[in-house]
């Protein structure tokens, strides 16, 4: 993605400090968006693993302890304890995912606003699209 003025068109639009700040903001939000989307994907995967695990554990033998990884070691837990831990982890992840997706939406709205503003002023002399 390149944010910047292209030389070919000779628009006489002057770049004001205000414009520059908008351009910077746009570029900053773009990077922030990428980073949050990456984290969101990672958390989503984790959540999916846990969901699979929940289904898997429903079939497990109740008297058989589960080896659960805590830190760097495996600990033998009763099935219900293990399920409890997974549940609380899932709840935590769901919350995190929600906060991530809220932030993603906020950034996207903000970027759309800036985009309209900048294209409105600079037209073809600016490129705000992903490569």
């Amino acid at each position: 993605m390149s944010v910047g003025l292209k030389e070919e068109e000779e628009t006489d639009a002057q770049v004001t400090w205000e414009d520059q700040r908008n351009i910077n903001m746009f570029s900053k939000l773009n990077i922030r968006l990428e980073s949050i989307e990456e984290q969101y994907e990672a958390k989503k995967n984790e959540k999916e693993y846990l969901d699979d695990l929940t289904v898997e554990l429903e079939l497990a033998d109740e008297d058989e302890p589960v080896k659960y990884r805590i830190g760097d070691a495996y600990v033998s837990l009763s099935l219900s304890d293990a399920q409890g831990r997974i549940e609380s982890e899932q709840a935590q992840l769901t919350q995190e995912l929600e906060s991530f997706s809220n932030r993603i939406n906020g950034i996207k709205t903000e970027m759309a606003k800036l985009k309209a503003l900048l294209y409105g002023k600079f037209g073809k002399s600016i490129n705000l699209e992903k490569d």
Binding site: V3, G4, E7, V15, Q20, I23, M25, S27, I31
Partner: peptide
């Protein structure tokens, strides 16, 4: 992020 903004500013300056 701040660095990125400064780089963008200078790039626009150069253009």
């Amino acid at each position: 992020e701040f660095l990125k903004e400064q780089i963008t500013t200078v790039e626009v300056n150069m253009a």
